[in-house]
Design a protein around this nucleic acid. Structure first.
Length: 604
RNA sequence: GACCCCGUAGCUCAGCUGGAUAGAGCAGCAGCCUUCUAAGCUGCCGGUCGUUGGUUCGAAUCCAACCGGGGUCGCCA
């Protein structure tokens, strides 16, 4: 399956050429297509150096022979030139026009169904504190990858695991009991997750104080940190939670409820959602039986009363799966949860975990273990590992208060969008409601694009000033280009606005004898590459390639727009062609941004 | 110490399944609004692609070593 429809024509022809000219069966993968450099004439370039042994001729003769064959046998190959070992092929305008007609008739960023069901896990917060910048990279990434996979023809199930139990939430609960005076989100006006986070900080303060007192009374730091009464109390509370103590459970339900309301508000504003939530309080018991089963089968072994797995053959270490006292570790429940998901969703073909790269080792081990337990699907597990987000001041540290809060950050970009947009003063006839929607759209575009344009695998620097930038390589720049095209199409009479739905088919089918000028061709070629980019993004689970290609496209379009008249063009055929080109760009940009989780406005 | 990731322009990033003189944005400088939205466009300035070897007709891209930055190595999560 070729996502590049031009290569779909050229590859078979090249195979014919090699078999007829050189009596050789050409391996498709050995053909390296590249964009012709702007200083030479041509649309596609093939480097013939790798083929010299096959042809037994020099580079010029080899390229010449292939070029002549293609011109003779392939309609869309108009002519060619040879520079050193490079065969530059010129594709006919008719081909590009044909492609554009296709782009007018269908969504070029929608692939036929693969029939596959894919689960994407992302977000996965702890319930003791609010979401921060690091979560936002995770959330936008997971959401975008889900959209990309959907566009590529998969059925996608979006899930999160909520870490709702454990010592962390007990600390918040205890501090709230001690110092909260019955404070609630309603009584304080604080968002639920913020309120619970506040008591997590309160716990830490009280704990530190106690540690200091103990140290002053002659304890070592280690001892003090283990013996601080408030910590012991929190541990006691965790035990009570595990023993189903009704009072503790009730408080836990209440406070987690506050947190979920807070998270939901953040998710909604960020424009993301989930098809299913998994709660650690329910999944943490999973996996035990599976580990014991593995022990029985001899996949694992017992040592010092604990159950171990030996991954040294795979270059990893030995790892505990069940403690001596029979209780679970983190790995245990991850094993159980994975198994449960494949049971719950029969036919699930792939499971993607969006989790930071500090857990690379953990997931390597997890996948190996599941493979050892004999699950076929273990090969279809994927750790979408992404890099940390650094601040100009260094790493984010909750203890040092350098964490960038997600809600605050979103508010800030939206405020900036408001300020910039108001300054530009193009919204005279917008009402307040419309303005609010637009500011939200622009601010979030700036933030999301900033986080998504970087290769997810890489650690990235979050420069607050750059993240709210709306010029250059940014989300709002792309939105702006889109809005400008929509304006053009409205003026072209091609669109009529009715109930927010834009309709009108004129300008979708350009004449087939149009001669492309260089600015038009640049845009068409970038559009033409887009399906292959989507395919790559879906394969590599990498939204950054989509983000960057969208930018390339709108940049080329802006250049075209600036120097070539569209509506002002007097020749009706040219005008229709340029409108159809503009429309195809707008449609594709809208879809590409949809894949990134970014909305585009009709006007801005 | 072992293992993993990263090192490209002043800053932030593309390019990395080897291919033609290494690309953007920001910052700086100079232009372009009586024409379809100037959140734009055009031009200039700016790089020993961390270093040294190696493989190759050809290396930012592959391999090795070293230097620098980060991460992981718990019967924690």
């Amino acid at each position: 399956m070729f996502h590049d429809r031009l290569q779909a024509l050229l590859v078979p022809a090249l195979q014919d050429a090699f078999s007829q000219l050189f009596n050789h069966a050409l391996d498709v993968r050995s053909i390296g297509f590249q964009q012709t450099r702007p200083e030479f004439e041509g649309d596609v370039t093939i480097n013939v150096f790798p083929f010299l042994k096959i042809s037994g001729k020099g580079p010029e003769q080899t390229a010449q022979a292939i070029g002549e064959f293609l011109v003779a046998k392939v309609d869309v190959v108009e002519r060619f030139n040879v520079v050193k070992g490079f065969l530059n092929i010129v594709i006919s305008d008719a081909y590009w026009l044909g492609f554009l007609r296709e782009a007018g008739e269908k969504d070029i960023l929608a692939f036929p169904s693969t029939g596959e069901k894919v689960m994407v896990e992302y977000a996965s917060p702890n319930t003791n504190k609010p979401l921060h910048l690091g979560h936002l990279r995770n959330i936008f990434l997971g959401w975008s990858v889900s959209r990309i996979l959907e566009a590529a023809g998969n059925e996608v199930i979006k899930v999160q695991v909520i870490n709702d139990r454990g010592i962390h939430i007990c600390k918040s609960m205890l501090a709230w009991q001690k110092f909260g005076n019955g404070e609630t989100p309603a009584s304080s006006g604080l968002k639920g997750d913020k309120l619970v986070g506040k008591y997590y900080v309160e716990f830490d303060k009280a704990y530190k104080k106690e540690v200091d007192v103990l140290v002053a009374s002659g304890r070592s730091k280690d001892e003090a940190e283990k013996e601080a009464p408030i910590l012991l109390e929190a541990q006691d509370m965790l035990r009570k939670w595990e023993a189903n103590d009704p009072e503790v459970r009730a408080l836990w339900e209440t406070m987690n409820g506050w947190v979920y309301a807070g998270f939901d508000a953040t998710y909604e504003r960020a424009g993301v959602s989930f098809d299913k939530n998994y709660y650690e309080s329910r999944t943490y018991v999973l996996g035990k039986a599976d580990v014991l089963e593995g022990l029985k089968k001899g996949v694992f072994y017992e040592k010092d009363g604990a159950v171990w797995v030996d991954n040294t053959a795979e270059g990893l270490d030995e790892k505990v799966l069940l403690r001596r006292d029979g209780t679970s570790v983190y790995m245990t429940q991850d094993i159980g949860t994975a198994i449960k998901r494949f049971e719950e969703f029969p036919g699930l073909s792939k499971l993607i975990y969006t989790v930071g790269n500090e857990q690379d080792y953990h997931f390597k081990a997890l996948f190996i273990i599941l493979k050892k337990l004999g699950f076929q699907w273990a090969d279809e597990l994927f750790h979408l590992s992404y890099g940390m987000v650094d601040l100009p001041s260094g790493k984010m540290k909750s203890r040092e208060g350098t964490v960038v809060d997600a809600d605050d950050l979103i508010q800030e970009v939206v405020d900036t969008a408001r300020a910039v947009t108001t300054e530009l003063g193009k919204l005279d006839d917008f009402n307040d409601e419309e303005k609010a929607v637009l500011f939200e759209m622009i601010g979030l575009a700036a933030l999301k694009y900033f986080l998504l344009k970087v290769d997810p695998k890489k650690r990235m620097l979050f420069d607050p000033a750059a993240s709210i930038d709306m010029q250059g390589h940014t989300g709002p720049f792309i939105q702006y280009t889109y809005a400008r095209i929509r304006s053009l199409l409205r003026k072209g009479g091609e669109l009529s606005v009715a109930g927010g739905q834009l309709s009108g088919a004129a300008g979708r089918t350009p004449a087939d004898n149009h001669q492309l000028i260089i600015e038009e061709k640049a845009v068409v070629k970038l559009l033409h590459q887009f399906p292959a980019v989507l395919n790559e993004a879906a394969t590599k689970l990498d939204p950054s390639s989509m983000a960057n290609h969208t930018y390339e496209l709108v940049k080329a379009y802006n250049s075209f727009y600036q120097s070539v008249p569209v509506m002002k063009e007097e020749d009706p055929a040219k005008r229709v062609f340029r409108l159809s080109l503009s429309r195809a760009v707008a449609d594709t940009v809208r879809k590409a941004m949809w894949c990134l989780g970014i909305e585009v406005p009709e006007r801005m």
